[in-house]
Amino acid sequence: MSGTTAGAWQLEARGDRRQFAAVEQRWSALTGGSFPMPAFTAASTARFHLHFHATRVRDVAFTATETATPVRTAPSAVRYEDHVRLWLVHRGSWALGDTRDNTELTIPAGRFALRNVGRLVHYATPPHTTAQVFVLPAATLSPLIRDSMVTGEISAAEVRLLAAHARTVHETLPELGPVGIEAARSTLLELVRAVAAPTFSATDSTLAPVLVQAARALADRLLTEPGLSSAVLARELGVSVRTLQRAFAAEGQSLTTHIRDRRLHEARAALADGRLSVSEIAAHWQFADGSHLSRLFKRRYGMSPTEFIRAGAGRFEPRAERAA
Rank of each mutant, 00 (worst) to 15 (best):
G238P: 08
G238C: 04
V239L: 02
V239G: 03
V239T: 03
S240H: 08
S240F: 05
V241L: 00
R242V: 14
R242D: 12
L244W: 04
L244R: 04
Q245G: 12
Q245M: 09
Q245K: 11
R246L: 09
A247E: 05
A247S: 13
A247Y: 09
F248W: 10
A249V: 03
A249H: 12
A250C: 04
E251I: 01
E251H: 08
E251S: 15
G252T: 07
G252Q: 10
Q253S: 14
Q253A: 13
Q253D: 08
Q253W: 01
S254H: 01
L255R: 03
L255E: 01
T256N: 06
T256H: 07
T257I: 03
H258C: 04
I259Y: 00
I259Q: 00
R260E: 13
R260I: 09
R260L: 14
D261S: 02
D261N: 10
R262K: 13
R262L: 09
R262F: 06
R262S: 15
R263D: 06
R263H: 06
R263L: 08
L264D: 09
L264A: 12
H265F: 15
H265Q: 15
E266S: 12
E266C: 11
A267I: 00
A267Y: 00
R268K: 11
A269N: 06
A270F: 03
A270L: 13
A270G: 03
A270R: 10
L271K: 08
L271V: 11
L271M: 14
A272Y: 01
D273T: 10
G274I: 08
G274C: 08
G274D: 12
R275M: 00
L276G: 01
S277R: 07
S277W: 02
V278E: 12
V278M: 10
S279T: 12
S279L: 00
E280A: 15
I281L: 07
I281W: 04
I281S: 08
A282D: 07
A283N: 08
H284I: 03
H284F: 07
H284A: 07
W285L: 12
W285N: 02
Q286W: 09
Q286H: 08
F287K: 02
F287T: 01
A288M: 09
A288K: 14
D289K: 12
G290E: 09
G290M: 04
S291D: 13
S291A: 15
H292N: 15
L293A: 01
F297V: 03
F297N: 01
R299Y: 00
R299Q: 12
R300Y: 10
Y301H: 02
G302C: 06
G302F: 07
G302H: 06
G302Q: 03
G302P: 09
M303E: 11
M303G: 02
M303D: 04
M303Q: 12
M303H: 01
M303F: 04
M303Y: 02
S304L: 07
S304H: 02
S304P: 07
S304E: 01
S304K: 05
S304D: 09
P305Q: 05
P305R: 04
T306S: 14
E307N: 11
E307F: 03
F308T: 08
I309P: 00
I309T: 13
I309Q: 10
R310W: 00
R310E: 11
A311E: 09
G312Q: 05
G312V: 07
G314W: 02
G314S: 11
G314T: 11
R315S: 15
R315I: 09
F316I: 13
F316H: 11
F316C: 06
F316Q: 09
F316A: 10
F316N: 01
